[in-house]
């Protein structure tokens, strides 16, 4: 899956939806979710390791595979997606990604009359956003595991949301400084319009997708 997936969030809108993530030990760490999202097992990054912290193709807010829900004592949690459903979701993400790529390229090159370089800088920002978001999430997980032991459960917290918004805010600010106020307004309008469209087309049982950046 292409890079854009990173900028796509699954908005977890099911009532009282809780997110489950698999982290270090997938069968043991319980992550509450309406849709199970696996984080690949990863190494602590080192100076030599230039690969992303997390294999982002699999963790950019949307899973390639559905992770099994563990035998949690809380029996009321929704079932994991079937393989077919995950594939379906994958295709959907790829489709939105492709479209968003086209739209942003058109905005930069045709509407804003910016250069290819400018557009490439934007793509780099998008990759950076994805990386920072995943890293912040990973840090949060590590801390939770340290505080609550290797097997823990939690609900999405204000802190997580705040973190996400802080990172998004940083990138939006970077965008505004880099391309100017006018470009920022046009870009924001495009983003908002695109997200509205996705929302309208969404199948509620899969949750709603949103492009963050």
């Amino acid at each position: 899956m292409k890079k854009i997936v990173a900028a796509l969030s699954l908005i977890l809108i099911l009532t009282l939806g809780v997110v489950y993530f698999f982290s270090q030990q997938p069968p043991e760490i319980l992550v509450e979710s309406d849709i199970s999202l696996p984080l690949d097992q990863e190494e602590k990054p080192t100076a030599k390791n230039k690969e992303p912290l997390v294999k982002t193709e699999d963790s950019k807010g949307a899973p390639k595979k559905a992770a099994p829900v563990s035998s949690s004592p809380k029996s009321s949690f929704p079932e994991a997606l079937s393989e077919e459903e995950v594939e379906e979701l994958d295709e959907l993400l790829a489709h939105y990604e492709e479209e968003w790529d086209k739209d942003t390229k058109n905005l930069f090159l045709n509407e804003l009359k910016l250069s290819e370089e400018d557009y490439e800088d934007y793509l780099m920002m998008r990759d950076g956003f994805e990386e920072d978001r995943v890293e912040a999430f990973q840090e949060f997980h590590n801390r939770m595991a340290q505080e609550k032991g290797s097997s823990y459960s939690y609900s999405p917290t204000a802190e997580m949301v705040e973190n996400e918004e802080r990172i998004r805010g940083e990138y939006l600010k970077l965008f505004k400084e880099r391309y100017g106020e006018e470009a920022f307004v046009k870009y924001s309008n495009l983003l908002e319009g695109y997200n509205d469209r996705i929302r309208r087309e969404a199948d509620p049982k899969h949750g709603v997708l949103r492009i963050d950046f």
Partner: peptide, 15 residues
């Protein structure tokens, strides 16, 4: 103003 991820990618920094 410079988010860390952007910094890493733009300067080829390690983690």
């Amino acid at each position: 103003m410079i988010p860390s991820g952007f910094f890493r990618l733009a300067t080829k920094a390690s983690y």
